[in-house]
Amino acid sequence: MKLFVLAFLLAFGAVAKADGVASSIESLISSMKDSFTGLSAKRDLWYENYSTMTKLTQSDTLQLEELLLVSKMAIPMIWSLYTSQVQGQKAYLNRLVDEKLAQSLPYDTEFLAPLFPYFHVEATLSMDELEDFQVEVLRDGDVIYSLGVDFDEKRVVLGEAHEQNRIILEGDDFPPFQASHPFTINVQIADDCAFTSLWMVKMDIDNPVPLPTKHHWCTQDYHQASTFSIRLNQDDQGTSDSAEDDQDNLVDEESQAIQLLDLTVYEGVLIQ
């Protein structure tokens, strides 16, 4: 009897152990199944995201290629039309002043006021070294427009006689003047309004360049004029105590002088 009970207990223990192993294996399989299901879902999500990014990249690439192609064709065409229009206007408009020279500042010229007070000043300058200078437009002797460049402060001040309007270009807005690199100042006077743009590069029909910012103001100060004057000045180099110093300063001024290469005043305004 004792042997039978012992045998029964041993057999029951073996079955219990077998049931525990089976349960553990089933739990492990279930866990692995859940893991594979999760991994499959993540893989599908990753593949979906990857496919979306690939399609967007391909689409962006095609759009960029199309944009580059259009730019290569359109920009030169637009620039050619623009420069041709500007040259056509210059050929059509009467020239009140037309001087091509290499004269050191100061420079002063006067012309009779046109029937309508609309004119465009185009002055091209060059400097061996960066020197402060001023440009003024006078109406019957009164300053109605001024431009002053201060390289120490890196600031350009645009204004008019009563200083009711003042535009200051400094910091990132300060024009990139370069020594021995000609630049052009365009000033348009349209009755009581003044427009200014600074071209750091020469307009070339074959080489498109970004158009400079055009700054303007209007005063509502209407006045019929008889004459206008254009005046360009370089800051004084200081005073000297002897004739020898005067001679030395004269040589220095000539070597550092700002050169006015040409100046043209068109009757009417240019779309530029």
Rank of each mutant, 00 (worst) to 15 (best):
T264K: 00
Q85W: 11
T52E: 11
D252E: 10
D152I: 08
L211G: 08
Y82F: 13
Q247A: 09
A179C: 04
E110T: 07
A102C: 01
L250D: 15
S242V: 14
Q220W: 04
I258K: 00
F12K: 06
Q234K: 10
G148L: 06
S84D: 14
H120L: 06
Y50M: 05
L112R: 09
D235L: 15
V209Y: 02
T124I: 12
V15E: 15
E66G: 08
E110N: 01
P106W: 01
I168D: 12
D19M: 03
K55W: 05
V86S: 03
Y47W: 06
A225K: 08
L232W: 12
G268F: 06
R231V: 12
Q259L: 08
L28I: 10
M203I: 13
Q259A: 03
S71H: 07
R166K: 15
P210D: 08
D235F: 15
P175T: 07
V265K: 00
Q103I: 09
F177S: 05
Q247H: 05
Q178A: 13
H216A: 10
L232D: 08
A7V: 05
T54D: 10
G171V: 01
Q259C: 03
T219A: 10
P76H: 08
K202I: 06
D60E: 07
K33C: 11
M203T: 14
T184P: 07
N49D: 12
Q188P: 00
N233G: 03
R139Q: 07
H181T: 12
D34T: 14
W46G: 04
T61V: 02
L96M: 07
P117C: 02
H181D: 12
P106I: 02
L67A: 13
I144K: 01
Y118E: 14
K17L: 14
W199R: 08
G20C: 02
I271P: 04
H162Q: 14
I230G: 03
L263K: 01
F195Y: 15
D60K: 07
D44I: 14
M127V: 05
A16Q: 04
A41D: 00
V157Y: 00
R166E: 13
M73A: 15
I144R: 02
L232R: 02
M127H: 12
S226E: 15
L6D: 05
A14V: 03
F151H: 15
L198P: 07
E267D: 15
L260G: 03
N186M: 14
A74V: 09
D44V: 15
L250A: 04
T219Q: 00
I271N: 15
D60V: 03
A190K: 06
L260A: 01
S240E: 15
L169E: 10
S35W: 12
Q272P: 00
K154R: 10
